[in-house]
């Protein structure tokens, strides 16, 4: 799974701590998702998608063979 989180965060001018507060998650979790070491739960993915006003699948991108 690829994540566009870092790119979107830069676009909105947010740091990891701010995004974490907005999504009600920890900064560590934001960092893990950005490094693509952790696939977020559906709840966290939806919260993040709402913050960036983007569909979930535009932020977290799966390769065809992963689906």
């Amino acid at each position: 799974m690829k994540s566009r989180l870092k790119e979107l965060r830069a676009r909105e001018g947010l740091n990891q701590t701010q995004l974490a507060k907005m999504a009600n998650i920890s900064r560590q979790t934001v960092s893990l998702i950005e490094r693509e070491e952790y696939m977020p739960s559906l709840l966290i993915a939806v919260r993040i998608a709402r913050i960036f006003k983007e569909p979930v699948e535009n932020i977290f991108i799966f390769e065809e063979d992963e689906l």
Binding site: I25, Q28, V30, L32, Y38, P40, S41, L43, I44
Partner: peptide, 9 residues
């Protein structure tokens, strides 16, 4: 208290 990412770690 931990969120999902922290539980994963």
């Amino acid at each position: 208290v931990m969120d999902d990412g922290e539980k994963f770690i």
